[in-house]
Design a protein around this nucleic acid. Structure first.
Lengths: 188, 188
DNA sequence: GTCTATAGTACGATAGAC
DNA sequence: GTCTATCGTACTATAGAC
């Protein structure tokens, strides 16, 4: 049963680093020392694999949210969120939002639904965190928390693309500016 | 000689809508009513095609910059920039920054250099526009114009991913918030 | 100079062995 | 229940016809 998890873990990494259409069942099988068809037993079609990868990521994010929400300071929660992306930037990985958004046309309706759920989960957490932070006077921003959540998510997602193209320092510039922008300053 | 341009135009569209690894020489040949090998005459390898697509986009952006820089108001220049992305959002296309960032690992060093040039071109234009706009008192933002250019570019790039996943209205929310954030308000 | 026929390989997926 | 042998297809690319 560990095989399934190994496939999922490796599949997610290849999805993020290469793109969904740039890795094959052979790549997975080769790394796991089995035949390609063994992967088909666990994930009959490639769409099944995609679906499971996104599903797993939703669970991972849920666990992150539960753990992070214990922090009393919303600024710190946001920093944790940014830190998650920083690790991807270093490893030249995309987030699954960026990766699956790029290969979106390759997937069927089932995978699309799963991706939509993932996107709304992440955006809802951001929106709530931003809203609470502003209410508590720790975060400051213009407009609705929903719009701001979209801004934060898109900053993070695409800065992983830029980190690949121009280097990790570009990710750092974005994340620093982002946290600085959102941090409430004592009005003089 | 029109064939080459047709290939480039169609190739760019497929690159953006499907991803570079999700379209083939056959797709191009089929649409152009020729054999796949005819494409190889114009672009021997797929990397040659990628390079030419990015090169063409750099020229397109240069033409956009020259034309747009004639506008005296930097806010209007930014609106034109955003409008460019809005058209892609409607057509479920990504920008080439997002598309090539996702498929980055598939390309050789030559294509990487071309993508880097494209990225720096776009960011340099944004930086200059933001800088000038702030100096003129029409735009307002915290931090360096360089950091802000990164924020704007990443907002635009990834909102095209989100537009695919959750719908075009998400792109509109991002672009409205972005322009609102940057527009200088008369200090009361 | 432009394109076609065709090779050689790698892909996702099925049918069936253990 | 787990995996292997194998099929049919689609890919990029080359060699050579017009």
């Amino acid at each position: 049963m560990a095989t399934r998890d190994l496939i999922l873990h490796l599949g997610q990494d290849l999805f993020r680093t290469r793109g969904f259409n740039a890795f094959s069942y052979y790549d997975l099988a080769d790394a796991l020392k089995v035949r390609p068809a063994a992967i088909h037993y666990h994930f009959p079609s490639k769409d099944d694999l995609a679906r499971a990868i996104i599903e797993q990521e939703r669970e991972t994010f849920h666990a992150f949210a539960v753990k992070t929400d214990r922090l009393p300071d919303q600024r710190q929660r946001l920093r944790r969120f940014v830190h998650m992306f920083a690790e991807h930037a270093e490893a030249h990985r995309l987030c699954l939002l960026g990766a699956s958004g790029a290969d979106y046309a390759s997937f069927g309706a089932g995978v699309h639904r799963e991706i939509q759920r993932m996107a709304t989960d992440i955006l809802a957490w951001l929106e709530r965190t931003l809203q609470e932070g502003r209410k508590a006077g720790r975060l400051a921003f213009e407009g609705t928390a929903h719009a701001r959540a979209l801004m934060v998510a898109t900053n993070m997602a695409a800065s992983l693309h830029l980190a690949r193209i121009l280097g990790t320092q570009e990710f750092k510039r974005v994340s620093q500016q982002l946290l600085s922008d959102l941090t409430a300053r004592p009005t003089p």
